[in-house]
């Protein structure tokens, strides 16, 4: 058992919280609890009891206005200071899918400048919600979640995952700073057009981390590839010992050993 205590943030419309809890339990977390944002707003000090904060997938507030936007505002307005302190205490924050959208729009992954946000997750280039398995290549750098991850297969299920930077220099800057940690590739690790890059993201970006590496946001769902039977081709290739996504959760848990 690791010592990691995980807080999975529930909010109206979050809907991947239970399988994310399951993933962390499988990965050996000491505790993985699902806690409603109202409780955290009442008592932000609750955060002190945990080492890992997860904003799970879902459709918080229906993705009304824009995906993750309303939750993002709540995170900045009500919990902004606590979240920055959490990160600065060498703790980990993970945003998956809708959680990634919320963390990005709350400025927790890439700080805005005086002209506003540097990047966003816009509507998929094909304009549609899509559920599809993809592969991505990790370049972990200082991001502890992705240590030894290499190639990962897992599903995406989103309508707004198209990573767009305000300008080319920003994208290059993120890359040079080692913040672009996950890119869509094919099964052989090579980039390609749709469906390899499933949503039109610039530079095939599937996930980014903050400058410390301890805050990670990604569109694909690692919690949906924890068990080998979740893989779409297990009846062809046989059962693997475990799903690719489990590594990411285990890395997070083991970071606190």
């Amino acid at each position: 058992m690791g010592k990691a205590r995980v807080l999975i943030l529930r909010a109206p419309g979050a809907n991947c919280d239970e399988e994310t809890q399951f993933a962390f339990e499988r990965a050996g977390a000491q505790v993985a609890e699902r806690i409603h944002i109202n409780r955290l707003r009442e008592k932000p000090a609750l955060l002190d009891d945990y080492q890992i904060l997860v904003v799970p997938g879902g459709f918080t507030y229906g993705d009304d206005v824009a995906a993750g936007k309303i939750l993002a505002n709540q995170l900045s307005v009500f919990l902004g200071d606590q979240l920055r302190r959490f990160r600065d205490h060498e703790k980990l924050i993970l945003g998956i899918c809708n959680g990634f959208q919320a963390l990005l729009k709350a400025g927790l992954l890439i700080s805005p400048d005086e002209d506003g946000p540097l990047a966003t997750l816009a509507q998929n280039a094909h304009g549609k919600f899509e559920d599809r398995w993809i592969a991505m290549k990790a370049r972990a750098g200082k991001c502890p979640f992705l240590r030894d991850c290499g190639l990962l297969e897992m599903p995406i299920a989103h309508g707004e995952g198209n990573f767009i930077c305000r300008a080319a220099w920003i994208r290059k800057g993120l890359d040079q700073a080692g913040q672009v940690v996950l890119r869509y590739v094919d099964k052989d690790g090579r980039p390609g057009p749709f469906p390899v890059n499933p949503n039109g993201s610039q530079d095939d970006i599937a996930g980014v981390c903050d400058p410390t590496g301890r805050v990670l946001g990604l569109m694909p769902h690692p919690e949906r590839h924890v068990l080998p039977t979740q893989h779409p081709q297990w009846t062809r290739k046989g059962l693997a010992p475990e799903g690719d996504g489990l590594r990411l959760f285990r890395n997070a848990v083991e970071f606190f050993k």
């Binding site: 991947c16 997938g57 599809r132 599903p155 299920a157 068990l227 039977t229 779409p232």
Partner: peptide, 23 residues
């Protein structure tokens, strides 16, 4: 139509509506 629906949320997917070498 099938890809417009999330058929994997809750993590319990074992046999998906789309199967085979190219899913």
């Amino acid at each position: 139509i099938i890809r417009r629906y999330d058929h994997e949320v809750q993590g319990g997917s074992v046999i998906k509506p789309l199967v085979g070498s190219a899913n």
